[in-house]
Structures are given as structure tokens and as C-alpha cells.
Design a protein around this nucleic acid. Structure first.
Lengths: 157, 157
DNA sequence: CATCTGAGTCCGGCTGTCAAACTCAGGGTA
DNA sequence: TACCCTGAGTTTGACAGCCGGACTCAGATG
């Protein structure tokens, strides 16, 4: 099959990037995953404009990647902070994939700025493309794409 | 460590999305990977404006994800088409990760529109987060981040 | 009471995106 | 030779979104 067989918007890549495919959403999810969870912390760390952060957080909450939860420090008024939901944690592989690509192809002078390791065993963590039979799959050559006709028709495009 | 320990731009996620983190770049790479390789084919399939496609292809070529190569059909003038380079193929896991997320969290009526399978063995292909010791790692809980001080200093931020 | 603070909203300027029109070159056709 | 067609862009002008900075609003403190 060929990509031209179905319209661009049917693909899950298209549907996902239509929601979160601007650079801020990736960075917001990364920061919230790393416990940068308050509005002004995000403003300070990302350098994003306040209105844009407000809108992005809104769509991330609306689509269930991020949850808004109240907290209160001693003697302070109640505030809100943001946490990843399960759906938001499921987004982590996207961030790991972006990070790996950058580590390999945009090398800084000192190598990868951040490395991930397995809590407990300490070994470095990476992404692998594997089939259900357990074979490691090289991207580009060894992947076949199959169109699910029902889903394409159901998408109403 | 905490994300606040180092500025946002040091991270490879930030450096990568600064280059390709708009929705078109993802879709262009997806389509070129699927042999939608000519300018007007991309225009037709993606619905992107011509000037934007021209600029995006330019940066993808400049950063080595895509190569421009001449071709000629019988009795036609020489034209150009676009192909993924090795660096571009290395980007495929990012697309697979986005697709998986969408398949799971933006379900259409008929399920996943496209599935990937291993050429040869036919089994479905997915991404796995694994450490070098071979353990499957769940995102969110079991990952520790380590800062490479040399790289952060070298980034000159 | 006035002040401070976190979490936003509002504003005017600038930049990027869009669709449509235009350009340019090479090859075919008359 | 002159004319037309096609692929691959570039140009144009209207519109949308991003930017930094100023403003708002509510609850706790002095």
C-alpha cells in the first residue's frame, strides 16, 4: 500500500499532531513529567508567553493528558498544579523518541545533555521497534503498513 | 534531579522540536517515508500551502533528514523528488510513537486506521521502552533522568 | 486596611500561514 | 519556429497565532 491510498487526516499521526503538534505541547508535557507543575514555574522554565501556556494547558487538560489538581502550602491560599495522567504518561515514548533523535543527530560538544536510566537496575533506557514475535525491527526497510478499511471508512472522510 | 536544574533549551527534546516541531514536518516525513515523494503529490496529499512546503522541505534537506534527488520519466524533463536519508529514517520511531498514542487515545469508530507489521514475519510492530539489561520499562515511574554536566556546560546556555 | 502572590486575561505589534496567482524552464506538438 | 503543458517552486495580500508586557482577581498576611 501507499500513503496516497487514504487521506492524510485518517492516520493517527495526523490526528495526534493536529492536537499537540506544536513545539510547546511537547515541552509542556516534558516539564510536567519532570515535576515542573506550576503555571509560573512553566512560564519561567519554558519562556512561553502566558496566554499561550494557558491555552495549551487547557487543551491538554481537555484531552486528558494533564490533570489540574489543587494544592495548598502551609499558610497559603489554595493553588492549582498540573500532573500527567495515564494518557499523558503514555506520551512519554514520543518524548523519548524525540530526545534520542536529537542526542544522535544534533550532538552538542559534550554529548547527550540528559540520559535516562532504569530506576533500580541503573542501565540506560532506550526505545526499540519490535514485532510481537520479538524481532527488533529496523525502521525504513522492514515495516509493512496495512490499512484498516473499516477504520478509514468510519473516519467519515 | 529536577527539570529546573537546567534550562529548557539544553534538552534534546527542545533542540529537536525547535527544528521540526510543527505539525507539517511530522506529516511531511511520514509521507516521504511512504513514497509520497514529489512536490505536487505532497501538496495534494497533505493540503499544505506551497510556500510552507517549500520552506519545510528546505530545512529538512538542510538538516539532512531528507535528500533531494533528480529523476526523469521517459520523454519528460528532469524533475526532483525527496527521499528519507538515514537520519530521516531514524526519525521513524517518533512517528510510530505518535501513531501509537493516537491509536490508543483518539480511537476512531473502526479502530486503528493503519497497523504496522514486520516485513517477513508479519507480526504487528510496536515501540518498547527497554533498558540495556533487557527489562521493559514503564514510562512515568521507572525512569531516572541523569544530567550530563559537561554537555550542559558545553551548550553555552 | 493595604500589600503580596499565583494564576491567569488582555493588548498591540510582529511573524507565520493560507489560498490563489504568478514565474520559470524543458519538452512535446503544429 | 511558435505555442502549449507541466512540475516545481516564488510572490502576494489577507488573516490567525505568537510574543512580551500590562492588567485583573482572589485569598492570605501585616
Amino acid at each position: 500500500m501507499n500513503e496516497v491510498d487514504h487521506p492524510s487526516e485518517v492516520c493517527s499521526v495526523a490526528r495526534t499532531v493536529a492536537l499537540f503538534g506544536d513545539r510547546w505541547s511537547f515541552l509542556i508535557l516534558r516539564d510536567i513529567g519532570n515535576r515542573v507543575s506550576r503555571f509560573d514555574e512553566l512560564i519561567g522554565h519554558l519562556g512561553i508567553a502566558r496566554d499561550v501556556l494557558s491555552r495549551r494547558l487547557g487543551t491538554l487538560v481537555d484531552h486528558g493528558l494533564v490533570a489540574k489538581r489543587p494544592y495548598r502550602e502551609a499558610g497559603r491560599r489554595e493553588r492549582v498544579e498540573y500532573r500527567l495522567t495515564d494518557a499523558g504518561r503514555d506520551f512519554v515514548p514520543v518524548l523519548v523518541a524525540l530526545m534520542s533523535w536529537g542526542d544522535e543527530h544534533l550532538p552538542g560538544p559534550g554529548g547527550a545533555p540528559v540520559t535516562l536510566s532504569h530506576e533500580g537496575c541503573g542501565e540506560p533506557v532506550g526505545l526499540e521497534l519490535r514485532c510481537a514475535a520479538g524481532h527488533v525491527v529496523r525502521p525504513g526497510r522492514e515495516i509493512r503498513r496495512e490499512l484498516n478499511a473499516a477504520a478509514v471508512a468510519g473516519a467519515g472522510v
